[in-house]
Amino acid sequence: MSVLGFAVLAGLVLAGALVAVLSENIVHAAVALAFTFFFVAGLYVLLGSPLLAVIQFAVNAAAIPILTLFIIMTTQSRRVRPAAGVFYLVAGVLAVVFLAGLWAYLGAPQEAFQPLGPEGLGVRLLTVTLLPFEVASVLLLLAMVGAVVLARRREA
């Protein structure tokens, strides 16, 4: 696995996420988020899982940003007002505390792995995790119906 590829992808992912979280222009934030998810798909390729990468690209890097931009258009919100200073303080402290927990993992032993192709992942998806797969489809159906019902215009 290429060290350079990982470094470039990780840098782009983190830069995109930072822009998405810090930018005051919400359209810029949404586009940066799309790029972030696109580079996360690249990370899945590095992990030897093209299936995950394709789904990440189709759902998170294409469908969700379009939905987000559509909602931004509908609600006409262009700018995000900055939050009060105390929120930045609390968020910074929480983020640092969370990162402190990271030290436990940095000494993970080095090992190589044999990636599993899309066909192997698909067979496991429909045998080992058949029940969660069906539950997930029902969940998507429920979410679709729920979103339609919730977003419907009420008759006056």
Binding site: L14, A17, L18, A20, V21, L22, V80, A83, F87, Y88, V90, A91, G92, L94, A95, V96, F98, L99
Partner: peptide
């Protein structure tokens, strides 16, 4: 951590 920061400050 970046996402957590965003959830709180946005």
């Amino acid at each position: 951590a970046i996402g957590l920061f965003g959830v709180i400050t946005r």
